[in-house]
Every structure is written in C-alpha cells, then in structure tokens.
C-alpha cells in the first residue's frame, strides 16, 4: 500500500447469528481507499455491500450481527479495536455515510437545520453563531436553494432530491476523511440521479476526501469511480482500475454485470439480466459461489473456491478459468 492509503480494510468477516444458524454475510473482504480516490463497491442486491459499510462504522444490527475477524485501518488505526466512545468521535468526523433512501433517513420530527446543527455543533461546542454559519455553508455546498429558509423546514416539506442533498450536507459537514455513499441515488428520480452524482463528484474534487461508492449499477461505477471491487455473495471476486475492469472484465460475474448495463440510458426495453439467483447465505455452494450461474463452471469450480489471480496492474480476479489463462 502506498502512503496515501486512508482506509485499509483487511480480511473482514461479518456474521449474522440468527436462530436458524450463523450466516456469513461478509466473508473475507479486503479493499483499500487512497486519499481523494473513489472506489466502487458493486454487486447485486443482497450480496453484502451495506453490511460491509456498516461493519466499517461498527453500526451493525444488534445483537444479530458481529464482525468476527479482520481489520479496518483508518489512517493506520484499527477501528475494530476502538472503544464505543472513541468510535462515536470517529463517526461523522473522520468517516461519514449517506444512506440509500432520503425519505427515511432524516428524522421526521426535527427541522433539517436542527439535524445538521447536531453534527456541526460537535466541531464548535458552545459557539452557536459559528455553528449556524457553518450549517448554512454546508447547505450551500450541496447547492440547496435558499438555505436560510430551508433550515426551519421539516423533511416532509422537501422533495427526495433535496432531502438527499441535506443528508449529503450532514455527511460532508465535518470534512471526513472517508465518505461512504450507499446507493445514494437508487431511490431518486432518474433526472435527479445525474445531478446528485455530479454534486458528489464536485464535492470530492474540492477536497481530498475518499469515497467508497456502493451501487448495483456498473454504469454508475464507470462514471464515478477510479477503481472498483466487484462483490458476489459476501466476497470480492474482482477488483481493479475502472477502465481496465470495464474494458476487460475477467471474472464471468463481472462480465455478466457489465453486459447488463444499457449502452445508452435512453435505451428502451428490458436489460439483459444475469440468469438465475444469487445463492442464499444459509446455503452457499462449496466451491465458487458463482458456479451455479456460471456458463464456464466445471467440477473444480464446484468443489474448490478459486484463488485470486493478478490479471493486470492492481487488477485481480478470483476465478479458475482466469488462472488457467494467466498461467
């Protein structure tokens, strides 16, 4: 890793301890983020992206889920060994997050000014004037029109796109080192989506904040990210620089994901989707987890999980067939 690494996640394992058994939702995930970089985490719904994100913040559903192994190094310090108190100081200030659905992520009974103020007040305790100025500033940064009037409004008085801007303002208000954006545009109207992505890009370019951008849409990855990690059933199956992965995807799952991206946004009709369903976490295949859906699967695939092969500079893929081609 270069000295620029802000966040280094190593061999993360997060399990759900459910009545019907232990479910390994995040099963050995590693990735790293450099200063000012946007890393995409892409995969079908249910593959464990959000659970990965919440593991980093240590905000997993309690008491069901627990991170049982791994390291989350933020500026070299392992978040998994921090006390609850230390963790609270890190959340919001060093690592922030935008949730998927703006309709539910703001508290309906408090004004948006109040909800933003809560976060900023931690930077300037007891300085109400400064805090107020910073609240307005943060709203201006996310291009919310007439912020002075907006601060007294409640979430239900705003559109989804505006609310997501407020959530964005909260996230960047304390200039975090790392921003996790968990499908930030999935719940927005298509026209608003592009504006929001552009806004995130601008915010990122004006700072040295690193972004972990979570999405199920490879099209957005191509637009937004520098590097990408492809997740399938709790594991990263391919990662590398976006251009390389996009132009030359090596893992059959990545290939299928990319094939399902429409060439043009306006394109009508159904998109090609990947055949079959991802496996249930309670009943994972013994070997490669993609084998039941993979056109290239053979006996070895079905019995042994593939090792990771380097297929380019910083480009890896976990697939036996890739290995055969490389070696």
């Amino acid at each position: 890793m270069t000295g620029d690494t802000v966040l280094d996640v190593r061999d993360l394992h997060t399990h759900f301890f459910l009545r019907r058994g232990v479910v390994k939702v995040v099963d050995g995930v590693s990735f790293s983020l450099r200063r000012g970089e946007v890393l995409g985490l892409v995969g079908e719904s249910g593959c464990g992206k959000s659970v990965t994100a919440l593991s980093l913040l240590r905000l997993l559903p309690q008491p069901a889920a627990r991170t049982v192994q791994g390291k989350v190094l933020l500026d070299g310090e392992d978040l998994l060994t921090k006390s609850d108190r230390e963790m609270r100081q890190i959340r919001g200030s060093k690592i922030a997050m935008i949730l998927q659905d703006p309709q539910t992520s703001l508290n309906p009974v408090f004004t948006i000014g109040d909800q933003l103020r809560e976060s900023i007040a931690k930077l300037h305790p007891g300085q109400d004037d400064t805090v107020m100025r910073r609240v307005i500033e943060a709203l201006r940064k996310v291009k919310l029109a007439a912020p002075e009037q907006r601060i007294d409004q409640y979430p239900h008085q705003m559109s989804g796109g505006m609310k997501q801007r407020v959530v964005g303002a909260i996230a960047i208000s304390r200039e975090p080192r790392v921003l996790i954006a968990d499908e930030p545009t999935t719940a927005l109207d298509v026209t608003i989506q592009l504006q929001y992505l552009k806004l995130l890009q601008e915010l990122q370019q004006n700072s040295d904040m690193a972004i972990l951008f979570i999405t199920h849409d490879f099209g957005i990855v191509a637009k937004m990210c520098d590097r990408v990690s492809v997740m399938y059933a709790g594991r990263i199956v391919e990662s590398g620089p976006v251009r390389q992965v996009f132009d030359n995807p090596r893992h059959p799952y990545t290939q299928a994901l990319i094939a399902s991206v429409p060439k043009m946004r306006r394109q009508a009709g159904r998109l090609p989707t990947i055949e079959g369903q991802p496996p249930a976490f309670s009943d994972l295949p013994r070997g490669c987890r993609f084998a039941p859906r993979c056109p290239l699967a053979d006996d070895r695939c079905r019995t042994t999980y593939p090792r990771s092969y380097a297929v380019g500079s910083e480009h890896t893929a976990d697939c036996w067939k890739v290995g055969a081609a490389v070696l």
């Binding site: 905000l59 559903p61 919001g92 997050m97 703001l106 508290n107």
Partner: peptide
C-alpha cells in the same frame, strides 16, 4: 430500527 436512527448514530451522536 429506522434509518434516521442509523443516520443519527452515523453522525456520532
């Protein structure tokens, strides 16, 4: 269990 409580915790409250 709601998302806004999750966000409140994300803020470090």
């Amino acid at each position: 269990d709601s998302e806004f409580v999750k966000l409140a915790r994300i803020k470090g409250l």
